[in-house]
Amino acid sequence: MKVKFGRSLAIAITIGTGLLVLANFFVRNEFLRRVQQTLLDWALILAAVALLLGAVNVVATHLRKIRGRRPGWVYSLFLLAALGTVVLLGFLDPRGVASPAVSWVFLYVHVPLQATIFALTAFFIASAAYRAFRVRSVDSFIMLVAGIIVLLGQVPLGQAIWDRIAAAKDWILAYPSTGGARGIILGVALGTILTGLRVLLGIDRPHVK
């Protein structure tokens, strides 16, 4: 009985909040706008709390790994040390996230690591290209032709091969490529609309036990 009430309440909360936020897309009304803003602020606060729970989950996962001496547990030690150091530096200084120590870690540890790991994609894209552009069918042949024209259209070498290649690249990007992308985006919009409506109608309840 208690569980059942909890379920109904959860579904009602989702539908109620959802409709209030959604109404703003359809009506320009000052009161509704303020309600929506308040709800979004609350959501932000809750997302921050969820992050604390997430951090607890990260710590617990790696502690388990260390305790069980699972492969790679030593790295988990370093992960926890880095996490703990950043959090400690932040909480020891009243300026918190704006403290010089945290800024230093952010600028000289976090940012370069992020930028360099992301830059690895430059190599990954090369090996992915080799596979993607292998011609196995009409489909992949079409992809190859479009890819080559767009790639060569960006570099001087392409101009040397065919003087109108930049124009061809622009044409592909402006028309057929945009068309294909629009079809995908519209399809995704349809899927999103039905997924959202099913939740707002209480049909799908991924959050209810």
Binding site: F124, I125, S127, A128, R131, A132, G180, I184
Partner: peptide
Amino acid sequence: LLMGETGVKCRVPQVVGAADPQVLPFVHAT
């Protein structure tokens, strides 16, 4: 791409679903 290409490198069979047209070409490749 970091994840998809690593999966390929480790010879892990991959099933991927994504919506962003900017990402889908890489899903197709990996």
